[in-house]
């Protein structure tokens, strides 16, 4: 598994059907996602759009196996996620998914290089190999001179590029980005989105979550979410 390049265009990578997510807060039950049906094929660039509180992040966490659905089916790469053990879920997060978050979520005490190496540490890749790969990725992200910088000495855009490099470390099947430009200015945001576009053109499947129509326009397909339901879809190209 892993390499995006090996997956052909029409294969369904993510297949969600009749998915619900219900939280119980005290005695109340809050339905955050309701009857979600979504298919993402390998190689696609999809954006999920919706106002704040519509359940975008919740959906992304489920897609990335950080959270589990309350009802319904979710198949990633043909594998039913509901039946997996915590160990198998960790393995999927490590190998199949690359996360990019609004707040970067870099480990503050580690250098950029070490941050990018981390997923490969958990994959059991040898120190030499993972150092080489991490350097390559940072180089690709235009951070050749920032290897030894800690996150607090990097700009927002640089941090997000480190995070993207980290997300790509294990050649995931899909990149899941939750408001990746939310903490950046317009120009840097455009740069980052350009990067996603380039990666997608290189064959990486990308799902971007946003409430910003401009950001959504980078994607070829946009799914609209409102109050936990999919209310529409548009193909832009």
């Amino acid at each position: 598994m892993g390499g995006t390049q090996t997956v052909t265009g029409d294969c369904a990578l993510i297949e969600v059907s009749h998915l619900d997510k219900v939280y119980s807060v005290g005695d109340d039950k809050v339905t955050v996602l309701q009857n979600i049906n979504l298919t993402v094929r390998a190689g696609e660039f999809v954006s999920i759009m919706g106002p704040s509180g519509s359940g975008k992040s919740t959906l992304m966490h489920i897609l990335g196996c950080l959270d589990v659905p309350s009802r319904g089916q979710y198949q990633l790469h043909g594998q039913a996620v509901e039946s997996l053990t915590p160990w198998e879920l960790a393995h999927i997060r490590n190998q199949e998914v690359g996360f990019v978050f609004q707040n970067f979520y870099l480990l503050p005490r580690m250098t950029a290089l070490r941050n990018v190496e981390l997923p490969m540490v958990y994959a059991g890749i040898s120190p030499v190999d993972r150092r080489r790969r991490a350097s390559e990725l940072l180089h690709q992200m235009g951070l050749s001179d920032r290897f030894q910088h800690r996150p607090n000495t990097l700009s927002g855009g640089q941090k997000q590029r480190v995070a993207i490099a980290r997300a790509l470390a294990n050649n995931p099947s899909v990149l899941l980005a939750d408001e990746p430009t939310g903490a950046l200015d317009t120009k840097t945001g455009e740069e980052i989105m350009g990067m996603f576009q380039a990666l997608n053109q290189g064959g990486v499947t990308v799902v971007v979550i946003t409430h910003d129509a401009k950001v959504a326009h980078y994607a070829r397909r946009t799914v609209h979410l409102l109050d936990g339901k999919i209310v529409g879809e548009e193909d832009l190209r």
Partner: peptide, 16 residues
């Protein structure tokens, strides 16, 4: 806790 969450999102197993 958040560091643990980040590590888990990157594929850290419970054992790790």
């Amino acid at each position: 806790t958040q560091e643990i969450g980040i590590r888990m999102s990157l594929g850290a197993t419970r054992r790790a």
